[in-house]
Design a protein around this nucleic acid. Structure first.
Lengths: 353, 353
DNA sequence: GGTTACAGTTCTAACGTTAGAAGTTCTAAC
DNA sequence: GTTAGAACTTCTAACGTTAGAACTGTAACC
């Protein structure tokens, strides 16, 4: 008999109904109920109706834990990012949650920024947690370790690029986007461009790739270049932006544009420049990457390299699901298109004004 | 026998080790292994050492799914917010993830902004998902439904205040914080203050409480007040901020301060004001709520009412865990302190400048 | 009347963990 | 030498779901 007898509208079950309760109420076996739930053949219409009525009456919802144990699959993927309260990572998480829904996966967002241990746990696929796959934005972990661990965890990398062949990687063409940025500035009349960002110690990091593209474009376009205009840092935060801008201030008259490897760096830098009466964009144009929403509402509004996050998220899931389904091909790089969004901070120099 | 024989350093297990594998390797029973894992008495030192060695050799990690099924507890709580890419909600999520770790819970962030269905699923405790509790920031769902559903789901409400007695609620004293804002502006020499935010259709919403505090303080301090200076809207977004500021523009010369029910509203409003050559704070002071990081980097930087999110997160977990542990007391309101953070956007009017 | 085919249903073991019940071995006391 | 109890281990069922194997019943065909 069922554990709960409906004693009127006021009484409620204290525990969720199980498959067994449905089976007993409908007077059929467990298997028949599963067959109905999964819409399988070989169930008489009359039986099906009876089972469905029982499901409705008990408010039965299949326990995903039971299914998980049985199938070994959870349809949950983890998103491992340093901090969820960074604007770009929040936007990324949002896009991935939406894409996950389209692809039938729930996205569990985990913050790894606190310690290397957290990152390693993510790279190892969260042992014990029955996570189907990991979308991973590594920060500190040794690429070698990631390579080792990813062999047993379906994984897609975002954000930072580790050594080739580590795991699938989805990103824009960072080098090309930096060239586009420099060409845009040159076409707007900028001649002496500074660069902030890119940790030289991580040769294939995003900031480094952007730096390479920047340098190549500066050379190709015959623009002036000085080592003192190239500031390197390994965090792309607002604080780092202010710090770098302060280091640049003594030479600020030498330059007329500043390329920052992220919008946060740019936001920090602009704040410092404005505090020191440097006019943006009249004295110095500034441009960043990520196209975070806040950039639109700054004064001046911030020009930026935009990624189509929905597309990136879809490609990420395609790659990840293929790995979850057992694909053992060599790691692949998926490139998503980027776009320059020109706003006030990189307005062309005009004779008037 | 164990399913995997270690055939050398290159070979790796294809599936995670189970308790059973450990037991077989150590030559003991399942129960003995659990006893070791849980550090129980009645295990000989020698046996314990053997079991621990086996655990280490196999890299065994207990399956949380198995535990969940057995115990009915997952130690996972859901955080249901409209969108994770809103700065305040991202900061909130970060604080809750950190607090969850302190209290032994993982925080699963779910976005409910897309549809009422998503919100209802959250309010119902995510049936089937074995979630121990829900931290819930409702937006659209009928309070009545939340009340019904929350009776069977350990739940704490954040952000929007529903009808009294619905569920535990953690927030700042919104009314008092609005009074503090008005007093600060008055003390800084502002006389004619406008207000943006607060949906009059949701009587106990945050924006409404702030509005009440605002009106009371204006009256108490004998400040001028006109209905045309009070703009109501139900979304606290940047877009709403620009829209509301545009509606205010024709009367902008009448006012000298603008109180916005959120920093996003304020950011949108400031952008519009600056575009129309209204000087902030010289012509109009602006102040918001939430103290989002971006406010610090705007020019002018944004004054705001700050909540101690770490404290809020800790109180949230205390309340939620008490409910998870079976507390059936009437719903309670937990108040966390707030603080005015004065920045450039509400600088006092000074004769010079 | 017997065979075949298939629709519809039940039985059973399995996923990994847990803990109560039951069993075994050992020590110490009478 | 027996007994009590402690120390330690094994046995077993349970959590909720699933699917293959096995069973029953019916209809069609020769």
């Amino acid at each position: 008999m069922a554990p709960e007898v409906d004693a009127g509208a006021d009484s409620r079950p204290t525990r969720p109904a199980r498959l067994k309760d449905v089976a007993e109420l409908a007077g059929v076996s467990l298997k028949t109920v599963t067959n109905v739930v999964h819409e399988r053949r070989y169930v008489k219409d009359e039986t099906r109706a009876r089972v469905k009525a029982a499901i409705a009456e008990l408010g039965y919802t299949p326990s995903l834990v039971g299914r998980q144990l049985q199938s070994g699959r959870s349809n949950i993927v983890a998103l491992a990012v340093p901090r969820i309260d960074e604007p770009y990572l929040g936007a990324l998480a949002h896009a991935l949650i939406m894409a996950g829904e389209r692809h039938g996966y729930a996205v569990f967002t985990d913050e790894t920024g606190r310690s290397d241990d957290h990152e390693l746990r993510a790279a190892g696929g969260y042992p014990g947690h029955s996570i189907d796959g990991v979308i991973y934005s590594p920060l500190a972990v040794d690429p070698q370790r990631v390579t080792e661990l990813s062999r047993f965890t379906p994984m897609v990398l975002l954000g930072e690029h580790l050594s080739e062949g580590t795991a699938d990687y989805v990103a824009i063409d960072n080098e090309q986007s930096a060239r586009d940025v420099v060409r845009h500035l040159a076409e707007s009349g900028r001649q002496r461009i500074a660069y902030v960002g890119g940790n030289p110690n991580r040769p294939s990091s995003v900031g480094q790739l952007r730096f390479q593209g920047f340098c190549a474009a500066v050379k190709e376009l015959g623009l002036e270049s000085r080592d003192e205009w190239l500031l390197r840092c390994d965090r792309y935060s607002r604080e780092a932006g202010t710090a770098m801008a302060e280091r640049l201030l003594p030479r600020i008259d030498e330059i007329d544009a500043l390329v920052c490897a992220s919008d946060l760096l740019a936001i920090g830098a602009i704040r410092t420049l404005i505090e020191h009466q440097v006019r943006v964009p009249d004295d110095v144009a500034v441009i960043g990457w990520d196209n975070i929403i806040d950039g639109r509402y700054l004064s001046p509004s911030l020009s930026s390299v935009a990624t189509d996050l929905d597309l990136l998220a879809d490609k990420t899931f395609e790659a990840l699901i293929s790995r979850i389904d057992g694909n053992r091909d060599p790691a692949r790089i998926y490139t998503v298109p980027h776009q320059l969004v020109i706003r006030e901070s990189s307005r062309p120099i005009s004779p008037s004004r």
